[in-house]
Design a protein around this nucleic acid. Structure first.
Length: 636
DNA sequence: CTCTGTTTATA
DNA sequence: AAGGTATAAACAGAGT
């Protein structure tokens, strides 16, 4: 039988924790008075507070310290104990550490490594020989019965509709519920480490040195949130609404009848109008082999109509505009407004640090990783994000990190030299694919400079991962450059000849993937390639391309997370540096205006530091500052 | 209300 | 025989 006790004083807790070097902990929280009836308010640190904390240092034991229960004499002021604990040398374990780190941060406490998140560890273990656990499989309530073969008290059964602070801390059920989470997290720590040590030691290293400390950074981003200019958003919401009506009316005028084009002009009725009433040819099919009507189809139709049916051209342009404005309004204006937190007036996006198969972050509610860029956005969505009062944004992004990682992998001389000499990789590629001197490739006044550079960029972004002539042709068409399949084939061939190690790396990497069935980053982050042995050529080929992409995209993600961990160390000394967002190769902060220069130096240094011995390509972090995310000024 | 498919925004 | 890969969100349409 387990031994869970109630702390009567801070001393009791200190005594329980004394000399322990591995400690798990868990917070119980409840909404502040203003948010008692709001769903999920208890997990929002701006609407809730810590009600109690449990610790466990030994299997089957635990201590619960009530902090803010209602109607009790037993509450303890735990702030100093928590502060001491957070700064201690002990391994501090939590299941979903980002949550605990966030509530500590809300109390001005930054938890220090060593830390260990058993939820992230769960995600880094294999569920079967061929499959990793996913987000949904990794909750404590799911894992404990599976791995420890024991039940866990249910929150709803213990609380019976009440908030946790309404429970009596003297009731054993209360103590048991609180302590069980810590006790089982500690047990899972040993279960997962045993598994890692036996099957995948590098994943233990990643959990301890990359993912778990990164979880703290995630908690900080979530807590800080990003301020928005609401009045600007409302103004743009109105303007976009008007614009959509206007375009819709023009479309109606054109079609002459009342066709239901929905919000995106992608209804069956609209496709029927295009392909049956107007008798336009189907030039592209969807993944399910049906008539497509996406942007690419419209571009193909535009070419066809220019020769055969020029009268239809204005309609194609109107559809493009209609979709664009609806996308902007529904996703980036209405959607962002819905996401503004009532307590802070900020957007507190959720980041999932293991939300992708490669190790990249995913962002949800709302996704702040796909805001339109300036050149593709008549509204200026990014300018909705503004620095908080007295603060300024500081943004750093890794320059061409995937290409740098790729050149490290393939060891191509020309690529490596370009980066070591801080050269221009796109010009280097231009020189390679057109067989012209480097000096001509960088000469902005040379004939075809713009087109050649644009083609070189497209190659650089795709060829590493197995881009084919057809694909290059399509990408170029989207960029407004018309090249035949033959020409694209020649360009790719020239590139492979010019960077000879690229092809041999690709072949070797594909072979290795076929031999092992998985793909790994430089740190050993592994991805099972589910379909690599598929009898179907198309499926197999897809997984082979994943085998090329994963080490590069994944290693770049590892490098970004390591930079976050380093920045976190600095935040201890410079707590005014507030992380807000990450966009794959970029991190956004806000800092007090007068601390701008200092913060820039710190962040740049952390990001450009050599990520691991053996990585011999220089990293470059490019900074920008500004009061609005839509108007950032590069710093040199 | 849930599920699949289509479309479109980003790195 | 020929898809760079990694995502999230909104809408359409069908089924429970």
């Amino acid at each position: 039988m387990e031994k869970y006790i109630l702390a009567k004083s801070a001393e009791d807790v200190k005594e329980y924790l004394f000399n322990a070097d591995i400690i798990s902990f868990d917070f119980e929280t409840a909404p502040n008075d203003a948010y008692r009836d709001e769903a999920m308010a208890a997990v929002d640190p701006h609407k809730a507070h810590i009600v109690g904390v449990s610790f466990s240092v030994d299997e089957g034991t635990g201590i619960y310290a009530p902090i803010a229960h209602k109607n009790t004499e037993f509450n303890i002021d735990m702030l100093e104990v928590l502060r001491e604990f957070a700064g201690s040398e002990a391994v501090k374990i939590a299941h979903n550490l980002a949550f605990e780190a966030m509530f500590l941060y809300a109390n001005n406490i930054l938890i220090n490594p060593p830390v260990y998140d058993t939820m992230l560890a769960a995600m880094m273990t294999l569920k079967t020989k061929t499959e990793f656990r996913n987000l949904a499989d990794s909750g404590l309530k799911t894992i404990v019965p599976q791995l420890l073969h024991t039940g866990l008290p249910k929150f709803t059964e213990v609380t019976e509709g009440r908030h946790f602070d309404e429970l009596n801390p003297e009731d054993y059920e209360t103590i048991r519920y609180a302590c069980a989470d810590s006790d089982y997290a500690l047990q899972l720590y040993h279960v997962f480490n045993t598994w890692f040590d036996k099957y995948l030691p590098k994943h233990r290293w990643i959990v301890e040195n990359i993912e778990s400390p990164t979880a703290i950074f995630v908690g900080l981003m979530k807590y800080n949130g990003v301020s928005v200019d609401k009045s600007l958003m409302y103004q743009k919401q109105f303007e976009a609404g008007e614009k959509i009506l206007e375009i819709h009316n023009e479309i109606k005028k054109f079609t002459g009848k009342d066709i239901d084009i929905g919000a995106n002009a992608s209804t069956d009725a609209f496709k029927k109008y295009l392909y049956e009433d107007l008798k336009l040819p189907v030039l592209k099919t969807t993944a399910k082999y049906r008539a497509a009507a996406d942007e690419e189809s419209l571009i193909l139709l535009k070419d066809w109509c220019e020769k055969n049916k020029p009268g239809t051209l204005p309609l194609l342009e109107l559809i493009h505009e209609y979709r664009k404005w609806n996308k902007i309004k529904s996703t980036y204006i209405d959607g962002f407004l819905d996401a503004v937190n009532g307590a802070t007036g900020k957007i507190h996006t959720s980041f999932f640090q293991l939300g992708t198969d490669t190790g990249r972050f995913a962002s949800r509610t709302p996704n702040l990783q796909n805001m339109p860029r300036k050149d593709n956005d008549p509204v200026g969505i990014r300018s909705f994000l503004v620095a908080s009062e007295g603060h300024i944004f500081v943004d750093f992004d890794f320059s061409q990190i995937e290409l740098r990682v790729g050149s490290w992998y393939c060891r191509d001389k020309k690529m490596l030299e370009t980066y070591i000499n801080d050269g221009d990789i796109h010009a280097q590629t231009t020189s390679v694919i057109y067989n012209i001197p480097f000096d001509e490739a960088v000469d902005k006044n040379a004939p075809h400079y713009k087109e050649q550079r644009s083609i070189a960029k497209n190659c650089n972004f795709g060829v590493f991962y197995g881009l084919f002539p057809n694909g290059l042709m399509r990408n170029l068409k989207k960029a407004g450059i018309d090249k035949t399949k033959q020409e694209c084939g020649e360009i790719i061939q020239n590139l492979k000849d010019g960077y000879p190690m690229l092809s041999s790396w690709q072949e070797a990497t594909k072979n290795e993937a076929m031999n092992t069935g998985y793909s790994e980053t430089a740190f050993g982050r592994r991805r099972i390639l589910k379909g690599i042995y598929s009898p179907e050529m198309g499926t197999r080929s897809y997984w082979q391309r994943c085998a090329l992409n994963t080490p590069i995209q994944g290693t770049a993600a590892d490098i970004l997370k390591l930079a976050m961990v380093r920045i976190l160390e600095k935040i201890r000394e410079y707590p005014y540096i507030k992380p807000l967002l990450t966009i794959h190769d970029e991190i956004l902060f806000e800092v007090p205006i007068d601390k701008k220069d200092k913060a820039c130096n710190i962040i740049k240094e952390c990001m450009e530091k050599n990520p691991f011995s053996g990585f011999d390509v220089p990293l470059k972090a490019e900074g920008a500052v500004g009061f609005s995310f839509g108007d950032m000024e590069e710093i040199i």
